[in-house]
């Protein structure tokens, strides 16, 4: 049992942190107040430097990849990192990214307008296809992702030679990492606010109600991160359902509190809080949502009856 990163992981995260602090990863309002900020430049920088491939590196591995997703999701910019970091390196390294994963054919799919490949994970197998922008209809959405649907163009699906259950479990872990990271980003933003903002002659963050609820949120987010990292290492199907169910369940109260404590400023598109909370609002329903994943963890652990 070791919670400290190894030497390679330490170096990796030091460099990642430097890149996250550089221009292109921070907050900027979108043109026409669009609700997301797709940072093509920062995405490209990460790709060119091999960050999305770290899971395949022996001394970095899936744990570092999951932790990277957690870190990147805490940024105000929207990055397609979950599928690229936890699925692509081991199952389809040659597919061009960004990737869009189709979970539910009836819904708009996140990242589709910027994706170069799409994936479909079904019970019977995993399929992938290359796509062009003309094949996608962007969809306006409250969620802080570029969202889209496929137009009725013919798609050349390729069968991927991978165990669909393994791909699916990695995807579960990837979403959990992204959701936990989004909550972390929102928390940091609200913490900065309540440290500075004074009402009744003192900082909001000195009120015990606010302190306790934010401390509870921090405990949940820290736990979620560790559950994700453990699941990324073990690939135990109980662990992956537990990690996603836990963070989805926690997200409801956390998102509520973050908006409460940001007050009216958090209702504006001038403040980045929505960039995290409106990603969390979408991810909380992924792959069965909190109840579905809790039930799945339970059945996987103890059986149906």
């Amino acid at each position: 049992m070791r919670f400290q990163p190894n030497e390679d992981q330490s170096t990796f995260f030091t460099v990642l942190e430097q890149m996250m602090g550089s221009g292109g990863a921070g907050w900027r309002a979108g043109e026409d107040w669009v609700r997301f900020d797709w940072s093509a430049e920062f995405d490209q920088l990460l790709e060119e430097n091999g960050f999305f491939d770290c899971a395949a590196e022996e001394d970095l591995g899936a744990v570092a990849a999951a932790d990277m997703v957690f870190c990147l999701a805490s940024l105000p910019v929207t990055l397609e990192c979950a599928a690229s970091s936890l699925l692509r390196p081991q199952f389809f390294p040659h597919l061009p990214r960004p990737l869009a994963v189709i979970e539910d054919e009836a819904s708009a799919v996140r990242f589709l307008p910027v994706a170069r490949s799409i994936l479909h994970i079904g019970e019977d197998g995993v399929r992938a296809a290359l796509i062009e922008p003309m094949m996608v209809e962007p969809v306006e959405s409250i969620f802080a992702y570029p969202m889209g649907v496929l137009r009725d163009a013919p798609i050349q699906w390729m069968k991927i030679d991978a165990d669909p259950h393994l791909v699916s479990e990695n995807w579960r872990i990837a979403i959990a990492a992204e959701l936990a990271g989004a909550l972390k980003g929102g928390l940091e933003s609200v913490l900065a606010h309540v440290r500075d903002r004074k009402q009744f002659g003192r900082p909001l963050g000195s009120f015990q109600t606010i302190q306790h609820r934010l401390a509870g949120a921090a405990s949940s987010i820290e736990a979620a991160r560790l559950l994700v990292l453990k699941a990324a290492q073990s690939l135990d199907p109980v662990d992956s359902a537990t990690a996603l169910g836990y963070v989805q369940d926690a997200s409801t109260d956390i998102v509520y509190d973050l908006h409460q404590f940001m007050g009216a400023m958090g209702l504006t598109l001038e403040h980045p809080l929505h960039r995290w909370t409106y990603r969390a609002r979408l991810l909380r329903s992924s792959l069965g949502g909190a109840l579905g994943n809790m039930q799945l963890a339970s059945v996987r652990r103890w059986g149906e009856a």
């Binding site: 949940s220 736990a223 979620a224 560790l226 559950l227 662990d239 359902a241 537990t242 169910g245 836990y246 369940d249 109840l291 579905g292 994943n293 809790m294 039930q295 799945l296 963890a297 339970s298 059945v299 652990r301 103890w302």
Partner: peptide, 13 residues
């Protein structure tokens, strides 16, 4: 089942 899963998650957290 879901409640059992939630309690399990709380223990593992």
């Amino acid at each position: 089942q879901a409640r059992a899963g939630a309690a399990h998650a709380a223990c593992e957290a």
